[in-house]
């Protein structure tokens, strides 16, 4: 695998494509466009990196996912659905159950929301709460000292992968909420292992079925096969060394987007199989 840094999008500042205060999350849609959620808006970038649209959100969002025909934004105590023009469609208000939604995944009518406050994953179908995911194996919830719980829909659209920071592993659940697989363990020296107190922090899956996870201290992105075999990691020196909770998104063109929350920047990586 070849994993190279291509260029940087956005940043901290006053220009239209830049964010003032914070960059919370990113996602891509079927047309390979990039949605970046930050401040109180969503910025849409074309695959070429041009700012295409700015869609305001009703509240400070923490996570974003793209469905077939709509956008979902995770908030504090709720999830908002917007159409691609930024018009609010519906809002799941579930303040009793939902805390800070820091990870979202959508497949059809199924919505998975990673709740960092209650350290669990809620599964919604057609806007109705169905069950929690992962609470059987993680009797005390997901252990997230970094404050962010992230998940991603795998390429097969039948399972969801979760970054479990304190247990230093990636867990895979099917859409019934049953743990089907897990990989990774603690280690500081082998790049295939996850080091520090709590890594990996964020996760995404590529169209080719690879799983990319991000780490902090040092900040980097690692790519694994869907079975958990280590493939490659991002080159050094791309991120601010103090950054953490690097959100990830992959499009179908071999691009991997990674946020740098400290600099409010989006780093664009190219992920190509060697020899082609």
């Amino acid at each position: 695998m070849q994993f190279t840094h291509s260029h940087t999008l956005s940043g901290k500042g006053d220009r239209a494509e830049e964010f003032h205060v914070r960059l919370a999350g990113i996602a891509t849609d079927a047309e390979h466009r990039l949605y970046a959620l930050g401040d109180r808006e969503i910025k849409r970038f074309t695959p070429d990196g041009e700012l295409e649209a700015q869609l305001p959100t009703s509240d400070a969002g923490w996570s974003i996912a793209v469905g077939e025909d709509s956008l979902w934004v995770g908030l504090q105590g709720g999830i908002e659905q917007l159409d691609f023009d930024g018009k609010p469609l519906q809002r799941i208000e579930d303040a009793d159950r939902l805390g800070l939604v820091t990870g979202l995944a959508v497949v059809g009518e199924t919505l998975l929301a990673a709740d960092a406050t209650n350290r669990t994953i809620h599964l919604y179908r057609s806007g109705k709460w169905v069950q929690e995911v992962g609470n059987k194996v993680n009797t005390r919830g997901f252990m997230i000292p970094n404050g962010v719980l992230d998940l991603a829909l795998d390429a097969d659209h039948a399972s969801v992968v979760v970054a479990h920071p304190q247990k230093h592993r990636v867990e895979r659940y099917n859409l019934k909420g049953v743990l089907t697989d897990r990989f990774g363990h603690f280690g500081m020296n082998d790049p295939a292992d996850f080091g520090g107190c709590c890594n990996p922090t964020n996760i995404t899956a590529t169209a080719e079925g690879m799983i990319a996870v991000s780490e902090k201290a040092p900040p980097r992105v690692k790519v694994f096969t869907s079975e958990g075999e280590f493939l490659t990691q991002s080159p050094d020196g791309v991120f601010d060394s103090n950054t953490k909770n690097i959100d990830l998104a992959a499009d179908g063109h071999g691009r991997l987007y990674a946020t740098d929350p400290l600099r409010c920047a989006i780093e664009v990586f190219l992920l190509q199989a060697t020899g082609h």
Partner: peptide, 17 residues
């Protein structure tokens, strides 16, 4: 305190396992 299991302040995380 994050109450981590593998606390880098408690364990010598760079040392042997």
């Amino acid at each position: 305190c994050g109450r981590c299991c593998i606390c880098p302040a408690y364990y010598d995380v760079r040392g042997p396992m």
